[in-house]
């Protein structure tokens, strides 16, 4: 009896190991394939066929062509970095202020403000009215069209509110007795106490900013100089007609077989995420939990 038990447990462990190993491979393979092709010369790719994964003679030719033949992608990289930095900072500050305000239980008008936030969580104006608002403000084709429409993350407002409400009352009361004003209380007590929440929410916001392309697609119609990397990448792959022609992109469109160049662009869009990934890991569980179950 005892022996059979141990055996089923062993079989079970073996099954788990096999299934998980396969899933890990499936998660990893496309990345390795993309990376491999990005270092492959077009000649080698053509001669070896499409089943190759690791190049015999790796080359940086593709990277040189994409990054240095004209400045399209370098500019895109810069825009992406700027929107990630500025967008995350602005959103984080505004979101924190709102959450902090709503955590003050004796604040006159608190319930009304909370309701105003909840409404926007539950109901949104939709693509066209939002577009017309951005247009009406004269923000089309400007950098701020990628920042302002998402300036407050209303979901995260509720997370901050929850966090600040949970702070021990004694901390605030003793600060009040010490004659600490509301501004100092926010800057010197609340903000330092919330660094973990800020880091978790901020990192996820930053990933969202880095990965965003749709807002740029609709709000930046003519100003191709402001295209973030993800939109440039999308234009390389989309079958959609593009009123846009950088010399390299025309090159790639004409020469659909130039897979390795396309993979170089993919790598440039992927590697920065992989670089911050280790720092993100610490916040996974708390981030997801805050995102899913609030209040």
């Amino acid at each position: 009896m005892k022996k059979r038990q141990i055996n089923t447990e062993k079989v079970y462990q073996a099954v788990i190991a096999a299934v998980v190993a396969i899933l890990v491979l499936v998660s990893l393979f496309p990345l390795i394939y993309v990376a491999g092709l990005s270092f492959t010369s077009q000649q080698e790719y053509m001669s070896r066929g499409n089943l190759m994964v690791i190049p015999y003679r790796p080359t940086l030719e593709g990277y040189k062509r994409i990054l240095f033949r004209d400045d399209t992608y370098l500019k895109g990289l810069l825009v992406s970095l700027l929107r990630t930095g500025i967008g995350t900072a602005v959103t984080l500050v505004c979101t924190l202020i709102m959450g902090y305000l709503l955590s003050k239980e004796d604040l006159p008008g608190r319930r009304g403000m909370l309701f105003a936030v909840m409404v926007t969580v539950l109901y949104n104006g939709g693509m066209i009215p939002t577009f017309l608002t951005v247009k009406g403000l004269g923000l089309l084709d400007t950098f701020w069209a990628m920042i302002l429409p998402g300036m407050v993350d209303t979901w995260s407002v509720l997370v901050f509110k929850q966090f600040f409400s949970g702070l021990p009352k004694e901390v605030i009361e003793s600060a009040e007795i010490d004659g600490c004003g509301e501004l100092r209380m926010l800057v010197q007590i609340a903000v330092p106490l919330s660094t973990a929440v800020m880091a978790a929410l901020g990192l996820f916001m930053a990933v969202g900013q880095w990965n965003a392309w749709f807002d740029a697609l609709i709000y930046l119609q003519k100003n191709t100089d402001l295209y973030p990397l993800q939109l440039l990448l999308r234009n390389v792959f989309a079958n959609a007609n593009m009123g846009y022609n950088s010399s390299i992109q025309v090159d790639m469109m004409k020469n659909q077989t130039d897979t390795s160049l396309r993979m170089v662009v993919t790598m440039i869009g992927t590697v920065p995420i992989l670089c911050v990934y280790p720092f993100l890991q610490k916040y996974f569980t708390s981030g997801v939990y805050m995102g899913a179950v609030k209040g």
């Binding site: 990965n211 965003a212 869009g269």
Partner: peptide
């Protein structure tokens, strides 16, 4: 991003 997923 979905763009990367589509590229893959």
């Amino acid at each position: 991003s979905w763009v990367i997923v589509y590229a893959i």
